[in-house]
Design a protein around this nucleic acid. Structure first.
Length: 590
DNA sequence: GCCGTTTTCGGCCCGACTGTTTTCAGTCG
């Protein structure tokens, strides 16, 4: 995402926090800035594209005041209101507000009574007992604040979706041992398949009388490091693996759907649904849909029932973001999202010929045993990728023969010969055209010289007639490095014009394209390929993550090339052959 | 500050738990 969008989102979030701290007369202003921060963060294009102000106010959540501030920021690099506000609040306080147990009222009291301005002074006052001497600050409250400070750092670190999925499977199997557990599910960002995860939200359906036993079961789990909250409907604990907070909520059968809906979110989606309910004189909470006047229950047993009573079709969790999905659900026009079962082949993987752990023979047999695929594409690295022991032209020729031999034994054309060819610094490819012509599928990717502007480099690769797909197009590695410099809108445009596919690389640290770029690509009619990029047997499972990205990007089966038969993929290739010569000639005229 | 097939003013999502109260404020999700 554009860094300007992120900067603005950050500023609006901070403005909201400062107004909250100052106790602004109108608390809804705080909510408005929070909402604006969320909206700006999730725009697909750089904010500049939404100007002028008159056009920008059409975005839901952006009004005249905030649009003007965005314009001010783009023109001058700062926002006067924001600069003024920052001076009114000790700077450390904005950060301290993120500590669990420290809200605006508590911090204000500390500021007023003890004159505390910085984090250091605050920690000191905690140590020497001044905080505890204040009215309303008994030892437990103080202890909670100290714990909150300690946990803040661990909690700020989000974990990869893949790790969270594995962790949640452990949690679920731990509770499934109890016969009292009637239903169990993960809600929150895991169910929505966000790329990184903070907390784990666990929902369990059980009878009222069984609640104590289930809560006790959690409390006694050896993986629980600390109990934060323990009520009779909910509990929060810190669990040891990955140092995560786990929130457990208990529901009756007739509440299950409402609870699941509520704790799946996201927040904006829920608020929108509640507004729809209010218009009809109803209210939605985590226990159901109710008529306000009579208090009569209208729905709640399943999510479907709730959406239905609101005259909507059921909305898949991955797209519950208040991005227009509610409107489409009202019209019954939701996209039919691509499913894992739709995938008919894996189109990037590596063998022992380069940096993979399985031989060609092992790859074929492993996939045939565990997956219901019609084809796989072997895409070992090309010679520039020395660390990955990339192959040269002659080695690829030898590999094509080796593949044929394995296919012959299998009695079908299961393995396709491909390559993951390096895009060199000038945008040319690392393999000669004649070997590229012999391959069934050519994946092109950047693996070096990240720091230059890579837009033209990628566009040139798209314009090469032999290139079928650009792999991990932005190069980001979650938690390690951001995308290299590249104007993805231009690359998406080039992919659309040349009939080149873009990859959704499903490696847990890549997820590249991310959902925003995949959304944009999908809108521009660019075909995408979801690949596991396997280097080892257990990597094939990652396909699920790539499908999740595609679903969050509203992709249907038709947007994803490897839901098609190989014959249809051949048609895709020949379509590019018809398009590209024109494009190259046009460039030559410039 | 935003928003609008009950509109340009008067609303704005809703409940659980904790710690301190003695009926509730603050915080969280």
């Amino acid at each position: 995402m554009s860094s300007r969008n992120s900067d603005l989102a950050h500023i609006f979030e901070e403005i909201a926090t400062i107004y909250e701290f100052l106790g602004v007369e109108n608390r809804f202003r705080v909510m408005a800035y929070r909402k604006a921060a969320y909206v700006v963060e999730h725009l697909t294009k750089d904010v500049e594209n939404y100007l002028p102000v008159k056009k920008m106010v059409k975005i839901s959540g952006i009004g005249p005041s905030i649009a003007a501030k965005i314009q001010e920021y783009l023109e001058t690099g700062s926002i006067k209101t924001y600069e003024k506000l920052r001076k009114k609040v000790p700077h450390d306080f904005i950060d301290l507000l993120k500590v669990k147990g420290l809200g605006p009222e508590t911090l204000k009291t500390l500021h007023r009574e003890l004159g505390i301005d910085t984090r250091e002074e605050f920690v000191q006052a905690l140590k020497d007992g001044r905080v505890e001497s204040l009215k309303g600050f008994k030892s437990k409250k103080v202890q909670n604040i100290i714990n909150g400070l300690r946990q803040k750092e661990a909690l700020e670190q989000r974990i990869l979706l893949w790790d969270a999925i594995k962790l949640s499977q452990r949690v679920i199997s731990f509770f499934k041992k109890l016969p009292e557990v009637q239903k169990i599910a993960m809600g929150g960002s895991i169910r929505r398949r966000e790329e990184t995860i903070g907390d784990l939200d666990l929902l369990i359906q059980a009878r009222d009388k069984d609640r104590p036993k289930i809560l006790k079961h959690l409390q006694n789990w050896e993986q629980v490091k600390k109990v934060l909250v323990m009520g009779n409907k909910k509990a929060s604990v810190m669990i040891r693996p990955m140092d995560r907070q786990l929130d457990l909520r208990l529901f009756k059968a007739k509440e299950w759907g409402a609870g699941l809906l509520y704790f799946t979110g996201n927040k904006e989606h829920n608020i929108h649904l509640r507004k729809v309910a209010i218009e009809r004189g109803w209210k939605i909470n985590e226990y159901g849909v109710f008529e306000v006047e009579s208090g009569q229950r209208l729905a709640g047993r399943t999510e479907k029932e709730i959406y239905k009573i609101l005259d909507m079709s059921w909305i898949p969790p991955e797209i519950r973001m208040d991005r227009g999905e509610i409107h489409l659900a009202e019209q019954g026009k939701l996209p039919e999202l691509v499913k894992l079962e739709d995938i008919r082949g894996d189109m990037q993987m590596h063998s022992t010929w380069s940096d993979g752990r399985q031989s060609i023979d092992e790859l074929a047999h492993y996939v045939k045993q565990h997956y219901n695929y019609n084809y796989i594409v072997l895409t070992d690295h090309s010679k520039s990728s020395r660390i990955a022991r990339g192959l040269d032209e002659e080695q690829f020729r030898a590999q094509i023969k080796a593949i044929s031999a394995v296919n012959e034994k299998l009695g079908e054309d299961f393995i396709k010969a491909g390559a993951e060819v390096d895009i060199l610094a000038d945008g040319s490819l690392d393999l000669k055209d004649d070997i590229l012509e012999e391959l069934d599928w050519v994946v092109a990717a950047i693996h070096s010289r990240f720091n230059q502007d890579n837009t033209q480099r990628l566009i040139k690769a798209c314009e090469h007639a032999a290139v079928n797909v650009i792999a991990h197009p932005t190069g980001r590695i979650l938690g390690q490095r951001p995308s290299y410099p590249v104007d993805m809108l231009k690359v998406i445009e080039a992919a659309a014009q040349t009939g080149t596919a873009l990859e959704i690389n499903a490696q847990p640290t890549r997820m590249d394209l991310n959902e925003n770029w995949a959304f944009e690509a999908q809108k521009q009619g660019v075909k995408m390929v979801i690949s596991s990029d396997s280097h080892a047997p257990d990597n094939f499972e990652f396909m699920e993550l790539g499908v999740a990205v595609a679903r969050r990007a509203w992709c249907e089966r038709g947007h994803i090339l490897n839901t098609a038969s190989w014959q249809e993929i051949e048609e895709f290739k020949s379509l590019k052959r018809q398009q590209v010569p024109l494009k190259v000639a046009k460039d030559g005229e410039k």
